[in-house]
Simulated assay, not measured.
Amino acid sequence: MPPSVSIIMPCYNAAAYLPQSVGSVLSQTFTDWELIAVDDGSSDGTLDWLQTRTDRRVRVHTQVNQGVSATRNAGLRQARGKYVAFLDADDTWAPSFLEKMLAALEKRPDAVLAYCGWKNMGLPGLRGEPFTPPDYETPAKRETLLAGCRWPIHAALTKREAIIAAGGFDPNLKNAEDYALWLEVAGTTAIVRVPEVLAHYHFHGGNQASGNLARAALQLLDAQQAYLARHPDFAAQLGRVRRRDLLYGNLLKQGYENYWKRDLPAARTIFRRVMRSGYGRARDWFYMLPALLPMPIHESLLKILDNSSGKTSRNPENRG
């Protein structure tokens, strides 16, 4: 008899984290699950560790390295449960995650997805505080979901048939692949919130490369544009002005975030993309136009600004 829940865990050189992540699965109060751990061509001891597990609910699949989207899709092809959850090999769940998420979905037969709150482990200050998202099941849900990813991949439980109908993960996306899937799954069907922090997103130190920050923002834009192209009625309903605000306003906000952190490589890449679309107010273009200059000149201009009257604290995105 198939399990109620299939848990898909993509694994790539994750041997150091697997005892904690798999341990959080083994500690679930709801026990009718299968864990499909897909080793994506690891070169450390990941596969050896997985193959020594004795719990029969843990199933191991191995493949040559193909990336996280293809790895999750490989797990989906083997999944047998009515419901599917995704847990990356370095993240964890609270022991009651599956029990509470499944109960929420079973109370709402019309809902295809349940989502919950999460905590960023290893980040200082407010970024490390627990966060419980609002109830997105409102008349504006589709716009809200289009504007950005609203929960991390391991903070959701979804009906498998809905994921299959949505086509699974886009292997062409190295970022925003989960955003693209949630948008397709949840945009026009009911979802339910579990207002508790049940998922833990672990940060392990080190800074994300600037190129990856820009790539993440641009691939989210790609996913937005692809969704609107597949759903022209929704695009028409939004209208041109609202579409541009949701797409390029969101992108510009990310560009500013990088700019004020003085992450110029990422900011310049994003600003150039926004300018190509013709989006932004005159004041936005004041900040974006220097991105067309050679990097040394741009850096020199910023040094002048930084040494002047505190202009770096005047983020236009924070002005009323």
Rank of each mutant, 00 (worst) to 15 (best):
S6L: 09
S6D: 09
I7M: 03
I7Q: 01
I7W: 01
I7A: 00
I8H: 04
I8Q: 05
M9A: 04
M9C: 14
M9N: 01
M9F: 05
M9E: 03
C11F: 04
Y12E: 07
Y12N: 08
N13C: 09
A15I: 02
A15Y: 02
A15K: 05
Y17Q: 10
Y17G: 00
L18G: 05
L18Q: 06
P19E: 06
P19C: 08
P19W: 04
S21L: 03
S21P: 04
V22A: 03
V22Q: 00
G23R: 05
S24V: 03
S24W: 00
V25S: 00
L26D: 00
S27R: 11
S27V: 02
Q28I: 00
T29S: 15
F30G: 05
F30Y: 15
T31E: 14
T31H: 10
T31I: 10
D32S: 09
D32F: 00
W33N: 00
W33M: 03
W33Y: 15
E34S: 13
E34V: 08
E34M: 07
E34Q: 12
L35D: 03
I36A: 05
I36G: 05
A37G: 10
V38Q: 04
V38L: 12
D39N: 15
D40P: 07
D40I: 06
G41Q: 02
S42V: 11
D44E: 13
D44M: 12
G45W: 03
G45C: 12
L47T: 11
L47R: 11
D48K: 13
W49C: 03
W49I: 02
L50Q: 06
L50V: 10
Q51T: 14
Q51D: 14
T52D: 15
R53M: 14
R53G: 10
R53E: 11
T54S: 14
T54R: 15
D55I: 11
R56W: 10
R56F: 12
R57W: 06
R57P: 08
V58I: 15
V58N: 03
V58S: 07
V58G: 01
V58L: 15
V58W: 04
R59F: 11
H61Q: 15
H61K: 11
T62L: 10
T62E: 15
Q63P: 07
Q63L: 15
N65H: 15
G67Y: 07
G67R: 02
V68W: 01
S69Y: 00
S69P: 08
A70P: 04
T71L: 06
N73W: 06
N73L: 09
A74I: 08
A74C: 11
G75W: 03
G75I: 07
G75E: 02
L76E: 09
R77G: 14
Q78F: 12
A79S: 13
A79D: 08
R80D: 10
R80I: 07
R80V: 06
G81E: 06
G81I: 03
G81S: 09
K82H: 11
K82N: 12
Y83E: 05
Y83C: 03
Y83T: 08
V84D: 05
V84A: 06
A85K: 00
A85P: 01
